[in-house]
Nucleic acid binder design. Structure first.
Lengths: 141, 141
DNA sequence: GTGCTACCTCAATGCGAGTTGAGGTCAAGG
DNA sequence: CCTTGACCTCAACTCGCATTGAGGTAGCAC
């Protein structure tokens, strides 16, 4: 397995070196060892970083993301918990899908001002009721 | 025009009183004056707060949202900006779908490591077809 | 062996988005 | 009159997520 220096991982994943060390410290990723002082990462860390980015963009905290999968690549043994997380993810995805649709509507809306557009107004009402996506769907830390 | 106490605005908008003061300080909302010490808000602030909530749900920062309101208080949401956010959501949703697939599989699969499981690999490929995302799906770091 | 560069640790700092707490003001009601 | 409750200011604090800086090291190129 090709081992990657932290800088290489950073470059390939579009994540800063300091963020990678931070993620390792938090147990979200793991190096496969050291070469001298230098951490060496397996290529699989790149996929993991994509998942972390996705989770973050969806409003999950790093702690929550960390609870979905351990740093070692093996997911927790608690299958029921995993299924629960997946179900929560279903909900988040559905919410984001709705939001996306509405954004796209608003972007395409021909009304001179968004506030005059019924679609836009509906979206505002929905956003302020549902509370929004960034409200964490997971339990507290 | 009916003037609202901050507590009333908070109750009606589902936003905390402290957040309202914070938003005022940041120039995202404005009171119409004071009655004694008390800020008085016009009812139009409620619409404004809906807009703020929607923006937050879509991943805009308060500063970005502030920039959407012109200096005169006029709302000018850039349609291109909305389309860009929608496109970002496309990517986020696709990646979350991958994450969900991973979790669900891990919950169901008896294989010791899911990298060894051909079923899983097939699912992953199907879920992530269309190209990988290597950067943060949201804007500038 | 000297330099260069990319790495290392650890502590401090910054930012976004608020919340909390101390101490104060006002209007209404008992 | 006195209390209660809703508001006020201002500063400090929290939390998540990193970045920055100081001081140190490994390995390669010359």
């Amino acid at each position: 397995m090709t081992a990657l220096d932290i800088g290489e991982v950073a470059r390939r994943a579009g994540v800063s070196v300091s963020a990678l060390r931070f993620y390792e410290e938090k147990g979200l990723i793991a190096s496969v060892g050291r070469r001298g002082l230098r951490r060496q990462f397996g290529e699989d860390v790149l996929e993991r970083l994509q998942l972390i980015a996705a989770g973050r963009a969806a409003g999950f905290t790093l702690a929550e993301i960390g609870r979905m999968f351990g740093a070692d690549g093996r997911v927790s043994v608690d299958r029921q918990m995993l299924e629960e997380k997946a179900a929560e993810l279903d909900e988040v995805i559905a919410q984001l899908d709705v939001l996306r649709t509405k954004l796209r509507h608003a972007a395409a809306c021909p009304a001179p001002s968004h506030l005059e557009c019924p679609t836009f107004r509906r979206m505002l009402r929905a956003a302020s009721r549902g509370g929004g996506v960034s409200r964490s769907p997971f339990g507290e830390p």
